[in-house]
Design a protein around this nucleic acid. Structure first.
Lengths: 246, 246
DNA sequence: TTCCAAACTTGATCTGGGTCAAGGCCCCCG
DNA sequence: CGGGGGCCTTGACCCAGATCAAGTTTGGAA
């Protein structure tokens, strides 16, 4: 498989190769990665890692969804990051995990042992550079989400979340521009509530409202069709392209 | 001045030397930095940079406070970052600013021309490494703030903000542990509201309430005394040390 | 096939914080 | 010294979303 091929194509065994670290890796670097690579699987609901745990690997999501969550003593929880396939997990240069990492669905991760990964990073400027870029992307996403949490209404919050999932889906599948988007919601209402700073009842009500208003179509509880992405983005209060890429 | 000295001491001309980029720089690297360094001053309220502007420098705050803000079409605004003295501004490797940068008080920044700074970064692994570390710090702070925005009550939000400012003050001045902390609020009630996802009326009411309950003492509108930091942190709902450092 | 529990929906009611409105304080400028 | 404009406070009222409480749907295990 040609490793310099388009960003958009899937790599058969491990998405990290082209999406995260190794878009421009040479074959000897790939060999080094290959040596320290392994896979881990988790069931839905399993905790990958507790906040403060020693974290001896970095990696990326191959399939499924993981989330980063913070919990207060009294049980209030806030999801601070959603890890979709191809997203990177880990903090090169940091020892501990900063948040709980939870498998929201069944999950497969492609991991690299951290120590040798960091050595590779030190030897290979473009890997270090790519990591900085990814971290900046995450920072942008986090700040985008601060606007959602701080200033948007419940309806706008739901629409924003649906837009993120829909857009990622479109990106991954390289469907054409503005046609309808179809996907299965990978989150329970409760998980959505924790991500949006709402209660699960409010999430349920607002999804029903969006359905009644034909912004989305629902089959069952999870299967969503977005007939018009522009309409959804409008509902999300998005002026920009959604801040997903730059 | 010995540049390897403690992180905590002020450097006479430019804090970036020891706080941000150059804690471990050798003299030739410092010379290169010196050549591309310049200062910019702004008055309170001035916009340093609009979202989307081409940003041809990076830098750090020398004195005063700047904020990163996002604004929706209808005028709702959310501050997504608070830049206190010694904080870094800029996105190495990115062309545009992602947010409006506003001088919240009178502001002095120490800037480096971006192109040569990036070259220095490429030549100097520990600078690149330090930048990644700083970006991870910002990411942690942003995620910490997501919990504040999504799940905390108005009173907890105010207490959290006061704690951040108080703690930063303590860190900068290296005062002793748990004695009382005194500082001047560097933000208007409106700016606090924009940071906390509240209205300015609610901010005012909650500050009055904290004052009535002796969590803080107020002289005038801005001068704050925190008689007991632990009490303040408790009000903030902070289980941890506040997530400021790791 | 039936049963059960998890996930979800919907209704009724309550409340924290928003909104609107009316001042108060204080500094700067004339 | 008096007036005006930021900035802040406080009160009265309202409403989006939380809370409490039933149900309903679904899918998998026995």
């Amino acid at each position: 498989m040609n490793l310099t091929q388009s960003f958009s194509q899937e790599c058969s065994d491990c998405p990290i190769r082209h999406r995260a670290v190794c878009a421009r890796c040479e074959s000897d670097e790939l060999e080094r990665l290959e040596e320290i690579k392994y896979y881990r699987s988790f069931e839905a609901g399993q905790t990958v890692m507790w906040s403060g745990d020693k974290m001896d690997f970095v990696g990326s999501v191959v399939s499924g969804i993981a989330s980063l969550t913070q919990t207060m003593e009294d049980g209030r929880t806030q999801m601070v990051g959603l890890l979709l396939p191809s997203d990177f997990v880990g903090r090169p240069g940091r020892d501990g995990a900063a948040y709980d990492v939870v498998a929201t669905t069944d999950l497969v991760m492609c991991c690299f042992r951290k120590k040798p990964f960091e050595e590779l990073m030190n030897d290979t400027p473009h890997v270090a550079h790519r990591l900085l870029e990814m971290t900046l992307d995450e920072l942008d996403a986090a700040r985008e989400w601060m606007l959602v949490l701080g200033r948007k209404t419940a309806r706008e919050k739901i629409a924003s979340l649906l837009a993120i999932i829909a857009r990622r889906d479109v990106t991954l599948n390289m469907q054409t521009g503005n046609s309808q988007v179809v996907f299965d919601l990978p989150l329970t209402r409760e998980a959505m509530a924790d991500y949006l700073g709402l209660t699960l009842e409010t999430v349920s009500r607002q999804i029903s409202a969006l359905k009644k208003d034909k912004v989305i179509l629902l089959e069952g509880k999870r299967h969503v069709t977005v007939p018009d992405m522009d309409r959804l983005l409008e509902e999300a209060g998005d002026d920009s392209d959604g801040g997903m890429l730059n």
